[in-house]
Design a protein around this nucleic acid. Sequence first.
DNA 1: CGGATATGTGTACCACAGTACAGATAAGCG
DNA 2: CGCTTATCTGTACTGTGGTACACATATCCG
Lengths: 207, 207
Amino acid sequence: MQHDQIRPPRGPADPQRRERIITATVDVLLAHGMEGLTHRAVAHRAGVPLGSTTYYFATLDELRHAALQRVVGAYTGYMHAWATELGQPTAVELAEAMTELVCLAIDDFTEHVIVDHELSVASMRQPRLKELACLYSSTTVAVLETLTTPVKARALAAAMDGLSLLGLTSPEPLPRAYVETVFRAILTPDAPNGPDAPHADADTEAP
Amino acid sequence: MQHDQIRPPRGPADPQRRERIITATVDVLLAHGMEGLTHRAVAHRAGVPLGSTTYYFATLDELRHAALQRVVGAYTGYMHAWATELGQPTAVELAEAMTELVCLAIDDFTEHVIVDHELSVASMRQPRLKELACLYSSTTVAVLETLTTPVKARALAAAMDGLSLLGLTSPEPLPRAYVETVFRAILTPDAPNGPDAPHADADTEAP
DNA sequence: CGGATATGTGTACCACAGTACAGATAAGCG
DNA sequence: CGCTTATCTGTACTGTGGTACACATATCCG
């Protein structure tokens, strides 16, 4: 406190250490979920001493929050890019794209989606997580609203969450046709499709 | 082992003790979630000594499983009764009934629904819970299939899960109109409703 | 009624994990 | 080059919680 120092008193030896800790935290979350997130697991993963994790983040809550922020950020970024690439799809195209999206999420981004759901559920009992969970859910609706009408966007968003939940819950993989019929039911009027008569391959029993 | 005893060697002093422990476990789950489920909390709640909880259930997993079974059972029972009472609704009636159902779930059965979601999410990392989580999700679809076409039933089920997730996640209560438009989007063809032009009051921003 | 056996419980052990903090280390300055 | 000060880390403390298990208690049979 001598010279009214304004700049940070000293630069840290490894300026990326904080970042690496967050990254490691995300990795631990993906691998073991909220339940498995511990200071020690993060420290091990990041290759830093245990003390570092509490040095850069006062409490485990803070650390978790920082990591979840990054996860949600990845989601919002991904979704915006996805929508941009889609342009102005027709109803059928959108149904197809959403099917692709959900199947990809379940198959290739399993851990990410699981963490997203864990965040949502955790936010139900921990108000401190509400904000992030809301950002997540509102992003979906906001992005879909650029592709269809507001009402359908809501329905699609809800269905998307429900389907990914189902896909990750059921032991067998969710049939692609199953997913697609749901989105078509929302996006295309009954008439063109036949009054709901299911496609031959779309009638697989719900797992 | 003297007389080849076949009947259970002796009746327990309090034959309802086991049941009371399960009930207490459910209560703890409702109040504090999976995270907060501990032997001690259950014992306290049930008014039994700590040892009892491990006496009747070898492990915490077992206890949790028994309690979740009861929660899911309550859900399936409720849903079947709900569908029975509905009879053969029109599309509009069904949309209304589902709106009522979701709003009621969020407002009056909050803790129950939260536990349901906790079960679903937990089952993603714990295969031992898959079976129960599946029973839960498949019940919804099965019940709805008695009220509408299979494809719409799936869409409704997915949307229902997504909406309750959203309702429990968002800080402000989910507007009733918001919920209803989603179900109407699935259940009623575009034409009669106007091509998706939202109702005046149904356009509340997503929370 | 007394002993044998099933039934139930209080206590203690152990592992895990969040966090505090005394010290170690390194950077700047005179 | 040594002192001061900020930066970092190893270790230890503490609370929590699952589970084991030695004892207590109750039932039944002879």
